[in-house]
Design a protein around this nucleic acid. Structure first.
Length: 658
RNA sequence: GCGCCCGUAGCUCAGCUGGAUAGAGCAGCGGACUUCUAAUCCGCAGGUCAGGGGUUCGAAUCCCUUCGGGCGUACCA
């Protein structure tokens, strides 16, 4: 049961006579911030009183009279200007905890009206190896997938991979000109990745060489303009000051751009072999684009290569997903929608939504300066076209009434235009949500960009996390001693390996999930792999301690669950733990309604905190009375199951020993 | 130029449609291991919620404005 929702609906009923629109006021019931104000509080009396011009405290008392909550809470108290404080009855908590304890779903109900959701996440380019930037979408998307499914929604997760873009032209060009056949035989994906990097760096070299003089020109002009303005600026003129500042940052950005271009040039020219290749392929960028165009036009040779490459690339992605324990119901890449695109554009034109502008076919959405380009001047379709076709396909094929896109916030404008265009074009009732997330920044506070050459590959990140976890697991286990202080490690090598996987990968996922997804955050190895504080490890450890108690006490957990001794609430720490356990559904509902995994991580962290405090205050195996011992065993069993289930919904595993 | 986002403790971040004294983690300081696993617990210290104005009984939260930062902005995805 979602206790919060239950209280809100009781309030809605009580408020029906007092206002025309009780819902928003009922929603003002919320968990108390401070235990001294009870478990929940209702804040609706003040704004309602204002609206009706009456005394808020009197209104609060009136609301309390009409309120039918005596089965749930102690008599409500009115405090301060008109807060209504609610304290749950212990009898209610006991009945509820008993019911939830015996429930396989831990008391969490399924939603009444399941949605048909297509959840679009991860969506990497298949031709490039995944790097840390792909982590957020994968991890957030997977947590949403697991949670929404658990709550009873019909979810189709779809990895909308980039398998049809310009990067394939580069690979095809690279393959035709530079392939090392032996290397390709041995490890095709590694060789394709090398070819991609090679073609990319050669074309960047040429573009840097041709672009550099222009940039230097611009820098020179900007500098002299700045110098002139600095000399003439009136310090009192704010506008001029602002303009100056802008010019300075312009100069700075030009300088760093030039530096980058020079670095690209130097990296090629310092290597005679590369330089020779660059000289031999002056038009490489254009040629690569031509290969893409030929692929799209159905050229048999390029199509054959593409068909050969894609499965290899997808296979290599799947290895990473396997390690991350992230799985998709569908992997429908962009290529799947190609046959539909010309019809999409024709239909948009026929409905008067798309028109030609500067040679391109565009949809113009009022209020937006940028057009939504569905066909380029050269006739090629864009990802806008593909995304439109994809929406239509998902509505038709999957009966989707909700589509969630777990994509970087930088694409918000694209989604705004996409969603508006869909509404005008299809006119169907479908919920479209850009579940956006912030940029991962480097420690220089600038967006974490993958510089060619030294990208932090996702796989090496995972390796690093696991090996760090391995050290900690080993040192912790080695420090275990018996009563006489003799070392008693209990984990063999392969168990240590397993635990390191679970702890390492879990740590990485948690580091990402516990941020509010919309914030940018600073990528930090140490924090990502930290094992203390608000981390996955903290909860995994709490879980392992519970299992340790069962082992030490030789508790038959199955029998315990059937045992008819009731759960008791006698200590404050017990009540506090019980209440937290009963609010699991509330946390899941909140997470699902806003698509924010950090709501669940926060809940689990608080739960684990309640649990470890409970350990300190309340002996379990050493409890003096049998009924207390059994009750506490049941409590920690319940807590362990909630932690395991909660972590599982985040895609994080647990282990019995650590 | 236009648009979107952000600015909260030394650091990294929470803070739900406005609610009672702004919260965590890390780092710092002081306690707790003859232990149900110290990957822990308990306590202390640390904040003009970027600045200013407004709306309100009440603002970190809503509106305006200044400053500082990030991102996007017509044929890459």
């Amino acid at each position: 049961m979602n206790i919060l929702h239950e209280l809100q609906s009781r309030f809605a009923a009580a408020l029906a006579d007092l206002t025309d629109n009780p819902e928003p006021f009922a929603a003002m019931v919320r968990p108390s911030q401070d235990g001294k104000f009870g478990d929940f509080q209702a804040n609706c009396a003040m704004p309602m009183a204002k609206q009706n011009g009456v005394n808020p405290r009197e209104l609060a008392l009136k609301i309390c009279e009409r309120l039918n909550v005596s089965d749930l809470v102690e008599p409500p108290e009115v405090a301060g200007p008109g807060f209504i404080n609610l304290q749950l009855k212990d009898d209610f908590l006991l009945a509820e905890v008993q019911r939830s304890f015996s429930d396989e779903r831990l008391g969490v109900a399924r939603v009444n009206t399941p949605k048909d959701i297509v959840l679009d996440f991860s969506s990497p380019n298949v031709a490039k190896p995944m790097h840390v930037g792909h982590l957020r979408s994968s991890v957030i998307g997977d947590a949403l997938q697991r949670t929404l499914k658990f709550l009873g929604h019909r979810v189709i997760s779809d990895n909308h991979t980039g398998d049809w873009g310009t990067q394939f032209g580069m690979i095809i060009y690279g393959y035709k000109n530079f392939v090392d056949s032996a290397a390709y035989e041995k490890d095709p994906v590694a060789e394709l990745a090398r070819l991609y990097r090679l073609v990319n760096s050669l074309s960047e070299y040429h573009s840097a060489v041709s672009g550099l003089p222009g940039l230097e020109e611009r820098l020179k002009a900007a500098k002299s303009e700045l110098l002139f303005n600095e000399g003439n600026a009136d310090p009192a003129d704010k506008k001029a000051k602002k303009a100056l500042k802008k010019q300075r940052s312009e100069v700075q950005s030009l300088e760093s751009k030039i530096e980058g271009q020079r670095a690209k040039i130097a990296s090629v020219e310092s290597d005679p072999e590369l330089k020779a290749l660059a000289d031999a392929h002056p038009g490489i960028a254009r040629s690569a684009r031509d290969e893409t165009a030929r692929l799209h036009a159905g050229d048999p040779e390029n199509l054959r290569l593409w068909k050969e490459f894609v499965p290899e690339c997808v296979e290599s992605l799947n290895r990473v997903y396997e390690r991350l324990d992230v799985h998709f119901d569908k992997t429908l890449g962009e290529s799947a929608y190609q046959p539909l695109l010309s019809d999409v554009v024709a239909d948009l034109k026929a409905k008067g939504l798309a028109k030609e502008s500067d040679g391109a076919i565009c949809v113009f959405i009022p209020g937006n300066a940028a057009p939504f380009i569905v066909q380029k001047a050269d006739g090629a379709f864009t990802y806008a076209t593909t995304d439109l076709a994809t929406v239509q396909f998902r509505v038709r094929e999957f009966d989707a009434n909700s589509m969630l896109y777990v994509v970087d916030a930088r694409q918000s404008e694209h989604f705004k235009l996409l969603f508006e265009t869909v509404r005008l074009w299809l006119g169907v009732e479908v919920e479209l949500v850009h579940v956006s997330f912030g940029t991962v920044m480097g420690d220089d506070r600038k967006p974490f960009k993958t510089r060619s050459g030294d990208t932090v590959g996702l796989e090496s990140l995972l390796d690093e996390a696991v090996s760090k976890a391995r050290e900690i697991v080993a040192s912790n286990d080695d420090s275990k001693t018996d009563e006489d202080g003799r070392p008693t490690p209990e984990l063999d090598e392969s168990t240590r390996d397993e635990i390191s996987q679970i702890v390492g990968i879990g740590g990485i996922k948690y580091a990402d999930l516990h941020h509010n997804r919309e914030s940018d955050y600073v990528f930090d190895w140490d924090k990502m792999l930290a094992k203390t504080g608000d981390t996955a490890t903290y909860m995994q450890y709490a879980y392992a301690r519970i299992q340790g108690i069962f082992r030490r006490g030789e508790v038959d957990v199955e029998a315990l669950r059937q045992h008819d001794t009731p759960i008791l609430i006698e200590e404050p720490a017990e009540r506090s733990l019980v209440l937290k356990l009963l609010r699991f559904e509330e946390a899941l509902d909140a997470m699902a309604s806003e698509y924010r995994p950090n709501i669940l991580t926060q809940y689990l962290f608080e739960l684990a905190g309640e649990l470890t405090t409970f350990y300190d205050r309340c002996p379990v195996l050493k409890a003096e009375e049998e009924r207390v011992r059994t009750s506490r065993l049941k409590l920690i069993d319940f807590a362990g199951r909630v932690i395991r289930q909660g972590l599982d919904l985040l895609g994080i595993q647990v282990c019995d020993r650590m």
